[in-house]
Nucleic acid binder design. Structure first.
Lengths: 207, 207
DNA sequence: TAGACCATGTAAAGAGTTACATGATTGT
DNA sequence: ACAATCATGTAACTCTTTACATGGTCTA
């Protein structure tokens, strides 16, 4: 029996908890709108192109696909293969597509970044500028590699005018551009930061 | 008793698991290098300035502070107050500072962003451009507000030359600049994206 | 012959969120 | 009268990662 009202009120958890988030389901649905994919192929996508704004490991993807299928948002189909293991590929159902379209225009919470590298930068004052520069350079190199990979994908869009491409290419193009512009912003920042750190090795500040 | 060897080998978890990550501990340690803070004050910091690159809720912070204290990386001290609840404030110990300084120059994994908004953009092709523009504009507004807040913090640094500021200000300055440059990159992208979407409302693509 | 790729999972643990609890003070 | 701020937590749950498991094919 619930305690008598007075001190506080009951707050009934109206919906099955987690109306917000659930981005993984929709990220998977989004990938599947381009055509049928297996769990393994989805895993690869998260490691590559899509990885810029969402990612998940195989261990998360397989159970989520099973859940999506049991809810009727995707439909699976077994595919026999020779020379490699059989697989199960999935397509979005009409209901899945409808739910995705609804979710897409829903307001998003402010992206709360978690950037381990910047947590480190916050404490760069604790170490010799030279050592900070080393760490910064290593990180910059990684980002440059990633930029090169995205540029290669961008080249595949070459010539296509984003204003007239078919709807299916619009989102991929826009997110790719976002990824590229973020990395470029990071690189510009890194150059500035390195300049400051280098100047501090020459004229160390008053302690 | 472990199964007999042969089929596979044991892999002994050498270290207490989680050598990487653990950013929360170090984010807290980093905040405390600027002076003693209570759990509540740390919570506020994560909501404001530092929130750009790391965040945590009170429920995560209090237990972590207790753990850090039991490991001797921070030292707590009770503070009596009048007109408001008493509190417990923490300072970094010499050992805490040493571990932080070590961690800071450690290589960081590539920041794997999780951006719910971009997951939505990926599927913008599913909705009318007008509705996509609405969603985009709402998100842009939020980012503009955040930029204004960061600009206000930046103003506090005004006049100070990052090359000669004391070490304690270096990291906060650099991370703030990073935050500002990322938001500016987002806004530039948003302008471009809106232009494309608007053009698509006028000359809809072939389906 | 060693490693990478294809393909799909289970089990356990760690990280993070939501909801709830308490209670004084200050502002509207 | 109501909300916000200060201050610190517990309990339950979800989300995510790490480690492990299996086994064929293809490449260096």
């Amino acid at each position: 029996m619930p305690p008598a009202p007075g001190k506080f009120r009951w707050r009934i958890p109206a919906t099955p908890a987690k109306l917000a988030e659930m981005s993984l389901r929709f990220a998977i649905l989004g990938l599947l709108t381009a055509g049928e994919l297996s769990g393994y192929e989805i895993t690869r996508r998260f490691e590559q192109s899509v990885g810029y704004f969402w990612h998940a490991r195989a261990q998360q993807i397989y159970p989520e696909l099973a859940r999506l299928e049991s809810e009727g948002l995707v439909a699976g189909r077994a595919v026999q293969q020779t020379g490699r293991p059989d697989k199960r590929v999935y397509t979005v159902t009409a209901r899945g597509l409808a739910e995705l379209a609804d979710w897409v225009v829903t307001p998003s919470p402010l992206t709360l970044t978690k950037d381990e590298f910047l947590v480190k930068v916050w404490s760069y004052g604790l170490v010799e500028p030279e050592r900070a520069i080393e760490a910064l350079t290593a990180h910059r190199r990684q980002q440059e590699e990633r930029l090169a990979a995205y540029r290669a994908i961008e080249a595949a869009f070459e010539g296509a005018d984003p204003v007239t491409v078919p709807p299916a290419f619009l989102g991929p193009y826009l997110t790719l551009r976002a990824g590229i512009q973020f990395i470029e912003a990071f690189l510009a920042w890194a150059v500035e930061a390195e300049r400051i750190l280098r100047a501090r090795t020459e004229s160390p500040p008053a302690p």
